[in-house]
Design a protein around this nucleic acid. Structure first.
Lengths: 184, 184
DNA sequence: TTCAAAATAGATAAGTCTGTCTATTTTCAG
DNA sequence: CTGAAAATAGACAGACTTATCTATTTTGAA
């Protein structure tokens, strides 16, 4: 049996609205209307709004790293891969309208849900690990040791993305990339 | 006529709940109950929930820089003031439970409100300016020029704070401070 | 073609939300 | 002490929320 097209439309619509508008201001009714599906179909696939949120986070996380792998694959050198990671995140911000990292957004909205927080932690830790692996392989300028460089690059990225949301611009993320370049 | 104690209690309670729980999940009813004031008193002082939000942002912004001035005042050297700015933000995170910057939080929740976004921009730009002024005064190691160092320090701070919210910890903000120290 | 699974429309429950209004009591300055 | 301003309790409107349920139609694989 093939995957349900209805389920995909629900998740697509919910993802877009959760990210663009926010989770709490997005009602089930709006999702149903914009996805153009029946109310019972939604509750058949996702027993509660929380399940829909978790599915959104899981799919976003999965897609994030699949696309990253594709993005980095043609780049041979670890140093250039590290810079491309900045480009990748910039590309995503451009594509989705400078609203910041979806995981940081949901953390800001739902401070206490353990299931949500756990997924955010996993996502961020995996980004940090990706950076660390590349730093270990890269022949960088050794202005810092590997651990410190890892932290620096990660902090610069997170800072650039979050400022992109407040200024609706790529300026700070681009500066972050330039700084990274000078440190590598 | 003196300032109303009721108005202060409303704003205190709303601020706490907006920050701890989030703006949209905090209802007027909860504010009324926890502030232990009458419904009409709230609407007398704040005609709408949005007015309450804007008052919260304005007061937080004002208090942020008043406290910062007090924090930096006894420190003589610009370089040490820059590091103390990291300490100041760390202290605030500790005090308020590692939920991130209140301005970033509200940006994540209310993506489209121009009045809100404007206040966030002003707040962040003022932090950046504060850093810039101190960098210009500081006799730093000249590993970068003043503008780039300003951006770097700002990005490190923002990154450290936002990661503090996902890991509910001061680890990344402390690392940010250490990196800043090595760059100064 | 058959027939179960999937999707549909729509009513409904039970609760919450913001904001308004009335009527009463408290507070506090002159 | 007086009288206006401030605060109170509480009902209420109207809209919205998530979730459930029934009954019907469509879909698609065997």
């Amino acid at each position: 049996m093939r995957e349900s097209a209805v389920k995909d439309r629900i998740l697509d619509t919910a993802s877009r609205l959760f990210y663009d508008q926010g989770y709490h201001v997005t009602g089930i009714n709006q999702i149903i209307e914009e996805a153009d599906i029946a109310r019972a179909s939604l509750y058949n696939h996702f027993p509660s709004k929380t399940d829909l949120l978790l599915a959104y986070l899981d799919r976003t996380h999965q897609e994030w790293f699949v696309e990253l792998d594709e993005f980095l694959a043609p780049i041979p050198m670890a140093r250039e891969k590290l810079l491309a990671l900045f480009d990748y995140r910039l590309q995503r911000q451009r594509r989705y309208g400078y609203k910041g990292c979806p995981f940081n957004k949901i953390t800001a909205e739902t401070s206490d849900d353990e299931q949500v927080l756990q997924r955010v932690k996993v996502h961020k830790e995996q980004i940090r690990d990706t950076i660390r692996q590349l730093v270990l392989q890269a022949e960088h300028r050794r202005l810092m040791d590997d651990d410190r460089l890892t932290d620096t690059l990660f902090l610069l990225q997170e800072g650039g993305i979050v400022l992109g949301a407040t200024f609706r611009s790529s300026n700070d993320a681009e500066k972050a990339r330039q700084i990274a370049e000078s440190l590598l």
